[in-house]
């Protein structure tokens, strides 16, 4: 049995650890709240963007010939963007995204793509994917906890560039969606080419809209609808990536909070167990001493 001294030392060390996990839990809670506010703030903009896009799409004669919208015949190379966090200690948060990204890559191969390359957002994703020997086209990091619109634009410009150069024929975005404080769901979305439903369905109810305000009235456009749509699409891609980054940030903080809360609870449990063990050890030592004294007295008589 471990000595009292050993147990005491372990209790001290676990108390220290639990202080750290408790502090991380509180920090994650505060950051989570901020991230949630930012997701809420983005919603009206994203909705307006979609309305404008479908308004322009409706009025432009043909949607063909717009590169970001065009489904490609070729299936040479596909790209998967994995949105992870810069830091660990968030439970299965990063692992889930990586696993899903690899699975999406397998699916793309099955669909007939010759090769799948990866773009990692977040330190953790980049490290793991490289370690697994995957082809990493680019690696963005340093903004997973509080992403800005400019960060999203940087990522979007890179992947759109690769797509427009014809280097990749399809881009899939994998990220943790923030469902609620206790639930994160890994989601995979096709980013490029921009799915047609995004331009046909302004309100996002899953149906192609029959009537649209801008199609009823003769709206003026500047520049021409098709040119405007071509301008709008990159902004739409930026917004989509920005949303994914924000969702992922909120999900990361939520996951870390849960993980740290569990760790703190475990530490408390461990301290209780160890205190019990220590008391037992102390009692055993006392009993031992009494026995020795009694035995000694007996031997004298």
């Amino acid at each position: 049995m471990a000595s009292q001294q050993d147990i005491k030392q372990r209790i001290t060390s676990i108390t220290g650890t639990s202080k750290i996990t408790r502090a991380m839990e509180l920090v994650a809670s505060a950051k989570l709240r901020r991230a949630q506010v930012r997701i809420e703030a983005l919603r009206p903009y994203a909705k307006g963007m979609r309305r404008l896009m479908s308004g322009a799409a409706r009025r432009s004669g043909s949607l063909n010939g717009i590169p970001l919208l065009e489904e490609r015949e070729e299936t040479r190379r596909a790209s998967v963007i994995a949105v992870t966090g810069d830091r660990g200690l968030a439970g299965a948060f990063n692992v889930n995204v990586i696993r899903r990204s690899l699975q999406e890559a397998d699916d793309l191969i099955e669909q007939g793509f010759d090769e799948v390359v990866f773009t990692a957002v977040g330190k953790k994703g980049g490290g793991t994917l490289r370690f697994r020997g995957k082809v990493l086209e680019n690696h963005f990091q340093g903004f997973s906890s509080e992403p800005t619109f400019v960060d999203a634009t940087t990522v979007a410009d890179f992947v759109s560039g690769r797509f427009l150069e014809g280097e990749v024929d399809k881009v899939v975005l994998v990220f943790n969606e923030f469902k609620s404080v206790v639930e994160q769901r890994v989601t995979a979305e096709q980013l490029l080419p921009v799915p047609r439903d995004f331009v046909d369905d302004a309100d996002g109810d899953g149906e192609v809209d029959e009537e649209h305000e801008f199609s009823k009235a003769l709206a003026e456009f500047e520049p021409e609808p098709q040119a405007l749509l071509e301008q709008l699409l990159p902004t739409f891609v930026n917004t989509t990536i920005y949303r994914a980054l924000l969702e992922s940030a909120a999900a990361e903080h939520a996951a870390r909070r849960t993980a740290m809360s569990n760790a703190s609870d475990n530490a408390g449990q461990l301290i209780d167990d160890l205190t019990l063990a220590m008391n037992r050890a102390r009692q055993a030592a006392i009993t031992q001493e009494i026995l020795e004294v009694v035995a000694g007295a007996d031997a004298l008589s």
Binding site: G55, E213, A217, L218, E220, F221, E222, P223, Q231
Partner: peptide, 19 residues
Amino acid sequence: PSVGGELGILPRHVPLIVQ
């Protein structure tokens, strides 16, 4: 400031989408 120059909007303007 639209791409084509400054643009003033008054009530009852026709529907419009500009960059």
